[in-house]
């Protein structure tokens, strides 16, 4: 395999190259980009996206999609705030946080049930939930923001342990667990298998319903986890939390090389894509594009989606041509 085709076929190589090029160019303009504080900030920004992307990746591997995680995050943040805020119900956070995780898992399982048992396409189900959950959040919050989260939680999520906020440690744990599921367990293999061919999966007796339910529930759980470890960093909880987050996560999964039709993809690719997508914003800041930074971020992220899809189709075409030659 020559260099070009490796770059095309193995998404990780391409992504690493792009990350290095962007990193080096921005550092050339302003070496402050590579300062320890800035890199740490970059990693902290990556954490919630990486956590949820691990779940959405499994969903996409099975051939489904989940575009409701942004709204789910907002709903869970609101519920968490209602439960543990000193100005609200004031439940102990040792009860409130696990309850948030449980609620996330339940919503995820519900989504999965609508898709598998209800036989509604997942894009429709999660599109509905994207709107519905956001609406529910606004309803619950009744136009007021929530503050007064326990101090300890704020400390943990802002400064954390061993110099890193707990969101980063959580992300590392989630990445390890997901990596093990994907590469070392039969469950992981079967998720790939269902996405690769539903028909064949049925013929070898795999339980498609259970596998997909797991992927959705896992995504719900991880969204809860990301909410619990990342949201309390903010000074207050607003109804607008996580708007556009679902698209960022899907972008990372697709740009990371996971086939949108299922059955193919690597965790490494997704994680590199998370890094790439997250570094665009600070890179722009250092390049001094000023006020328009936010707008450019979106445009560039979108461009990477197109780039990823185009490379995919080139790879597919080459593969077909090679098959034809046989």
């Amino acid at each position: 395999m020559n260099f070009m085709s490796r770059l095309l076929r193995q998404r990780e190589y391409g992504l690493t190259a792009v990350i290095l090029i962007i990193g080096a160019s921005v550092a050339f303009i302003d070496t402050g980009f590579l300062a320890a504080g800035n890199l740490k900030d970059l990693i902290i920004r990556c954490a919630p996206t990486a956590i949820v992307a691990c779940g959405v990746m499994l969903v996409v591997l099975t051939g489904e999609i989940d575009i409701s995680v942004g709204s789910l995050m907002a709903l869970l943040a609101a519920l968490m705030g209602m439960m543990i805020s000193e100005t609200r119900m004031e439940i102990s956070m040792w009860l409130g946080l696990p309850a948030t995780l449980l609620l996330g898992t339940l919503v995820g399982a519900f989504t999965g049930a609508l898709v598998t048992l209800g036989k509604v396409p997942s894009i429709i189900v999660t599109l509905g939930l994207l709107t519905a959950l956001r609406g529910l959040t606004t309803l619950i919050m009744g136009g007021n923001n929530i503050d007064g989260l326990p101090d300890g939680l704020g400390q943990m999520t802002k400064y954390g342990v061993l110099g890193m906020p707990i969101s980063v440690w959580t992300a590392i744990a989630v990445i390890i667990v997901t990596g093990v599921i994907i590469t070392k367990t039969a469950l992981g293999r079967r998720l790939f298998a269902v996405g690769s061919s539903r028909y064949s999966a049925k013929m070898v007796g795999l339980n498609e319903t259970r596998l997909k339910l797991f992927a959705f529930a896992y995504t719900g759980f991880l969204t809860g986890l990301a909410t619990v470890v990342d949201v309390p960093r903010l000074p207050k909880i607003e109804a607008g939390i996580g708007i556009g987050f679902e698209l960022l996560v899907i972008t990372c999964v697709v740009v990371g090389g996971v086939s949108i039709s299922g059955g193919r993809g690597k965790l490494r690719g997704v994680l590199l894509a998370v890094l790439l997508m997250t570094m665009i914003r600070p890179a722009l800041t250092f390049m001094d594009v000023g006020e328009s930074g936010e707008k450019w971020t979106r445009a560039i992220q979108g461009m990477f989606i197109l780039l990823a899809v185009i490379t995919d189709s080139i790879v597919q075409r080459r593969r077909k041509r090679r098959l034809h030659d046989l």
Binding site: T185, R189, F192, G195
Partner: peptide, 27 residues
């Protein structure tokens, strides 16, 4: 041939009845 096109030969042979290590958790 019913196969999982994007999986490799190894996984195609074993998917659905994979052998586990002693612990019963890992492949």
């Amino acid at each position: 041939s019913t196969a999982f096109p994007s999986l490799n030969t190894l996984d195609n042979i074993f998917v659905g009845r994979e052998p586990f290590t002693a612990g019963g958790l890992f492949l």
